[in-house]
Design a protein around this nucleic acid. Structure first.
Length: 137
DNA sequence: GCCAACGTTGGC
DNA sequence: GCCAACGTTGGC
């Protein structure tokens, strides 16, 4: 199983919104970046992803699960991009902030630190474990 | 196919 | 609100 990190601005789609979407989850649309698309395409049902609040909060706040693999994004006029469906699994007891991630030398290679603009990122197994421990899950 | 101009993202 | 980093667009 692979691990990922997906980012959202809480003003447009927040963790609370994701939780409200419930078991059926929601489609993760609007990705318009090829690198992010590659990552979306590599996702499989059952993979887990951190839900990160960018701009406001700047913290990993919850965990979601991939419930539908890559399919075309109807909101993309070019038809080139796609999306997956995700559902909320559980919140972190303690959100792990960007500041905390940057302060941890074990997490210095995270994409979040080195390529902060990429909105869909892979997360290494070791990084996943560290952040789960930090987050109390 | 190059590259300047422009738009967007996201941390600060 | 600013601006650096990055991706995309479009003229040549």
């Amino acid at each position: 199983m692979a691990y990922w990190l997906i980012k959202s601005e809480p003003a447009s789609w927040s963790w609370a919104d994701q939780v409200k979407a419930g078991e059926k989850g929601t489609n993760w649309n609007g990705v318009r970046n090829h690198q992010a698309k590659q990552n979306l395409m590599a996702m499989q049902i059952g993979d887990k992803a951190f839900f990160y609040h960018s701009n406001e909060g700047k913290a990993i706040i919850g965990i979601v699960e991939i419930i539908k693999p890559f399919y075309p994004d109807p909101t993309d006029p070019t038809g080139k991009f796609g999306m997956v469906d995700v559902r909320a699994v559980k919140p972190l007891k303690h959100p792990v902030t960007l500041e905390a991630i940057k302060a941890d030398p074990r997490l210095k290679d995270m994409v979040l630190v080195n390529n902060s603009r990429l909105s869909v990122q892979p997360v290494a197994d070791a990084e996943w474990k560290i952040i789960c421990a930090e987050g109390g899950v």
